[in-house]
Amino acid sequence: MLKRRRARSPALGLVGAGILLALGLVALLAPWLSPYDPHHRASRPFLPPSAGHPLGTNDIGQDIASELIHGTRVSLLIGVLAAAVALSLGTLVGLVAGYYGGPVDVLLMRLVDVVLVVPFLPLVILLAAYLGPGMWNTVLVIGGLAWARPARVIRSQVMSLRSRCYVVASQAMGGRPAHVLSGHVLPGIMPLALAQFVLAASHGILVEASLSFLGLGDPVRKSWGSMLHYAQLRGAFLTGAWRWWVLPAGLMITLTTLGFTLVGYWLEERFDPRLRGGR
């Protein structure tokens, strides 16, 4: 009688999906969309926006608009790859912990607790500083530390699936754990894993931006974060240049993160049994 209607609608999820689709297209078509090669000097440095350079040029005369368009590729790629690493680890840990239970579960969940307590960004900075700049290092560092949350969510879903009839039946008929897990449990956690993946990607993109901003990003591949790193080094936000040098890159990061977050929350709300129906 007192059941509340759901406040959030799928419309916001669709907005998020639209944002991501548009960004994906920009990333795919980057070489055709951008007017210049972002790695070459196109004009004099520190030019304000003009017809030839819609967002002006940076401190060494590269076209900022082209940097921005190519940056979509790098930022998206790193965010998605880091999320993939985090989710693979998280799913593995969550599956094993949730399926076997007992001491294995206790041990793995203690590990999750430990990882969740470690200060995330400082450790990422420390590791990235030691490993040196590079795209794969960034991906591994972020992914290698961000798996704990998805692991916990997936574990609880596995625990609830484990007691369902078809899984119990499959075990009773002598199905090997690997078979039961991949055939019966994995399909059940896929939607939830997808939601966690999307949320991890939104987090990954923000962390990558922070790392690159601190000068720990890949020096060869320009992401939005590394654009802002140079803008900050040259004090662009203390001159009028912030409007075309600082503003667009940050807006792109915000838009991307927001797109992933919207889609992630929407998926989570749809597929997470704990958020469905009840309070």
Partner: peptide, 25 residues
């Protein structure tokens, strides 16, 4: 909720730069 979500999606360093440029510069 949406407003706070939007603010949380902004990289904090960029937010700082924009605030400095607007309220300082």
């Amino acid at each position: 909720v949406m407003g706070a979500m939007l603010l949380a999606s902004m990289p904090v360093f960029w937010l700082g730069m924009v605030l400095v440029a607007t309220f300082g510069l």
